Simulated assay, not measured.
Amino acid sequence: MCYDIALNANLQRILKSVPLLKTAGNLDLNFDTTYHKIGMSFPQWPVIVNNNGLKVDKYTWGPVPKLLDTLEKVKRQRQMYLNARSEKVLESGTMWNAIRHQRCLIPVTGFFEYRQIPEWKNKVAYYIHSKEQEVFLIAGLWAYSNSWDVDKPERIPTFTLLTRAANPLMRQIHNGGDNAGRMPLMLPNELALQWIEKDITETDIRNIIQYEYPAEQLEYWPVNSVRKVKPDDETVIARAVYEGLPELSL
């Protein structure tokens, strides 16, 4: 699944990538650019929603479902809701189906996944981004959740990032673990803006979640592990050299 993302871009660069956002509300939003945030830290992130018009606002990554009704449960299980399988959005009875009308977009400049190499002790981290868009958009869902980091939980806006079956390139990179063969649901601008339209049909939603971002439009390279403490700067995405690393194919 996708738990590591980057947004090395300010609001003006997001607006440049999605021109229609120039009509959005809350354009005085400030946020810290980053080369890496891990979902398990439940960071705040700029999110695009359609709430009586396009808006950009800060939401917290990681919904807190009602079944997580104690702080102990939240600590144990919240990370399971950082990502949502896009197939579940139209599956009756799921949490994601229940909030399918609460759609959002997550702007990023790149994301990270780990590749398992036969007979290698450690997986190899890769940085992946779009060749076509400096800032690209990932489909998501949002919800108001209890904030369990205070004595009396208050309701805060949160989001989950949607994933789908990986394209041929990402199947080779994200090839290990319980959730191998997944990638973020990356959308071109036209589909991204359709995703947050108020009146789209279930057929529209089905068509959008079936979109596969083309492998040839992705640029990627190995990096040092992003799960180790390091400065939040360009060294995070610097190309790393691994002797004997097998080539990927398209």
Rank of each mutant, 00 (worst) to 15 (best):
C2W: 06
C2I: 04
Y3I: 09
D4I: 04
D4T: 02
L7T: 11
N8D: 13
N10D: 15
I14Y: 10
K16R: 13
S17P: 04
P19M: 11
K22R: 15
T23C: 02
A24E: 01
I38N: 14
G39W: 03
P43K: 11
Q44N: 07
V47M: 01
N50P: 02
L54R: 01
V56S: 10
D57K: 07
Y59K: 11
W61G: 05
P63M: 02
L71F: 10
E72I: 08
E72R: 14
R76K: 14
R78I: 05
M80Y: 08
A84Y: 13
A84T: 12
S86G: 07
L90W: 06
S92C: 05
G93P: 04
W96N: 13
W96G: 04
N97A: 03
I99R: 12
Q102E: 02
V108N: 02
F111T: 12
Y114T: 13
Y114N: 07
I117S: 11
P118E: 15
W120F: 10
K123E: 06
E132F: 06
G140Q: 05
A143W: 07
S145C: 06
S145H: 08
V150E: 15
I156P: 03
F159V: 09
F159N: 01
R164P: 02
N167C: 11
M170P: 10
M170R: 09
I173P: 01
H174D: 10
G176R: 00
N179P: 01
M186T: 14
L187S: 14
A192F: 10
A192R: 14
I196F: 05
E197Q: 15
K198N: 09
D199E: 15
T201I: 10
N207T: 10
I208M: 08
Q210C: 06
L218K: 04
Y220N: 09
Y220A: 04
S225K: 14
S225T: 15
P231S: 03
P231V: 15
T235E: 08
V236T: 05
V236D: 00
V236P: 06
I237N: 03
I237R: 02
V241N: 06
Y242M: 09
E243L: 08
G244E: 12
